[in-house]
Structure formats: structure tokens, C-alpha cells
Amino acid sequence: MLGAYLPILVLVAIAVIFGLCSLVFSSLIGQKKPSVVKLAPYECGCEPVGSARERFSVKFYIIAMLFILFDIEAVFLYPWSVLFKRLGMFGVMEMGVFIVILFVGYIYVWKKGALEWE
């Protein structure tokens, strides 16, 4: 069973070697003439203002949390969809109830304005 993953491991090894080789060769072959001005982060030619590791909108955290919630729902859907034909009508009803509950939460999130970008 695990034998199926061996070719993938080989491909992982090749892909990693390819990635690392490109990085190493690029840093070996390319010329290097660093200067203070050149190493400054790009800000359209002006002197950089403040730190780049700024705080950002809380919206993105909400999206990340919602993603985790909905992704877990999606994880439940895959085993159900594989066994879908064997579970029959019972399975459809169960999943219907599950998705309806999910929709209630979704409408709550929508009404709360978590999906708005103003």
C-alpha cells in the first residue's frame, strides 16, 4: 500500500534538488555588487518609511478563521461523497441537515458583515 507513495518520494527528492540547485547556481553565477542604496527595500525610489512588518487589517484574520471552519466542513464532505451511493437516501438527508446548519452559520457570518470589504 505504502509502495504507491515511493515514486512520489522520488519525485519530491528530484523537485527539492531542482529547487535548491536553481537557488545555489543563481547565487554562484550572478554577480554581486551590493551597496547601501541598492539593498534598501524598493519604495518607488523614495527613502523607505517605517517598518515593512506593519500591522494589517483584522479582516484578513477573520477570513483565515472562516476558511478553517469551512474547510473542516469540506473535509467532512469528501468521505461522505465517496460512500454516497452506499449510504443511500439516509446519507443525503444527513448531509442535507449538516449543510443547512452550515448555511445558518454562513448567513450569520454574512449578516454580521464579516464578508464585507469597505
Binding site: 512520489i8 519525485l11 519530491v12 523537485a15 527539492v16 531542482f18 529547487g19 535548491l20 536553481s22 537557488l23 547556481f25 543563481s26 547565487s27 553565477i29 550572478g30 554577480q31 554581486k32 555588487k33 551590493p34 547601501v36 541598492k38 539593498l39 534598501a40 527595500p41 524598493y42 515593512a52
Partner: peptide, 30 residues
């Protein structure tokens, strides 16, 4: 691309900055 200057801005996180491109390319191949 290979002969261009391999540039790392001051204040960048060295290892993450180096490895991120490979992290983007490898999953696509896999």
C-alpha cells in the same frame, strides 16, 4: 535569469527569503 545579480534586501529574513521560491515551485511539480 541565472546571470542576474542575486539580490537580498537589507533586513530580509535570510532563510525564508532564500527558500520561499522553492516552496512555491515544488508543490506545483508534485
Amino acid at each position: 535569469l541565472l546571470t542576474k545579480e542575486d539580490f537580498r534586501p537589507a533586513g530580509a529574513d535570510k532563510w525564508l527569503f532564500y527558500l520561499a521560491p522553492a516552496m512555491a515551485a515544488i508543490p506545483a511539480i508534485l
